[in-house]
Amino acid sequence: MPLIPIAMALAQFAPVIAGWLGGSKAEDVATKVVGIAQTVTGQSAPDAALAALQADPNLSLQFQKAVLDQQAQLAQISADVTKAELVADTANTQAVNQTMQAEAKADHWPTYTWRPFIGFIFGLMLLGDYFVIPILQGWWPRIPQPAIPSEAWVALGGILGVASFFRGKMQANPASQTDNRG
């Protein structure tokens, strides 16, 4: 039986457990919490340990105390996950920044003007869609509401971010076999 649902059920006795059961190390935390429950109850099966805690208030009190005793170790597992996520986010941001710097140093004007051009178009769309047209509709009610599909916003956001990352990464690599540098 998976240990995470049992660990979530054990959180009724020590609510602090629920905060530790997220991320990639959730299984490690669940294993540790279920192990504590098995040690306290003397049961070898995780579901039997849960049932024993639900049946005996003294055991549930002992379980709470044992979890509090192990709180620092369980919190460290959770903190390690958060730290790893922050390191990955930082590395991703650095890669995007390097791509944008490579685009800005490109030899041909379409490459180094593309992202600013799309950024200005995006800004004009936002300004028109959410400010100018509503003001004009207040003066002239016959002006229709623009029908800009949500896909247009997603496409522009992609061009400003993710898609340019890969294009810039290719352009920044001198070993690239294509000649799409401009």
Rank of each mutant, 00 (worst) to 15 (best):
N97C: 11
A79V: 05
L156W: 04
P46I: 08
K65E: 11
M125P: 00
S78I: 01
S44K: 15
D56R: 06
T90R: 15
K25E: 07
R115K: 13
P57L: 02
L136R: 04
D179N: 14
V40I: 09
V96A: 14
A11R: 02
Q54K: 13
A152E: 04
A7Q: 03
R142W: 14
I159H: 05
I77L: 14
I17G: 02
W20Q: 10
K32Q: 14
Q43K: 15
V16I: 10
I133D: 01
S60E: 05
V132C: 04
V154L: 10
T39W: 06
I4Y: 02
V29I: 14
N58M: 15
A172I: 03
L50W: 07
G123W: 05
D47M: 12
I135P: 00
W139I: 13
A11I: 10
A9D: 10
V154A: 11
G123Y: 09
T99V: 14
K169F: 12
N58L: 13
A26H: 02
G161N: 08
I118G: 00
G123E: 11
P46H: 04
A95P: 00
E27L: 12
Q12I: 08
G23A: 00
Q177F: 05
A9V: 02
Y130M: 08
F165V: 00
P146D: 02
W114A: 15
A26N: 03
A48S: 12
D89M: 11
Q38R: 15
A106N: 06
G158P: 04
L68I: 08
A79Q: 13
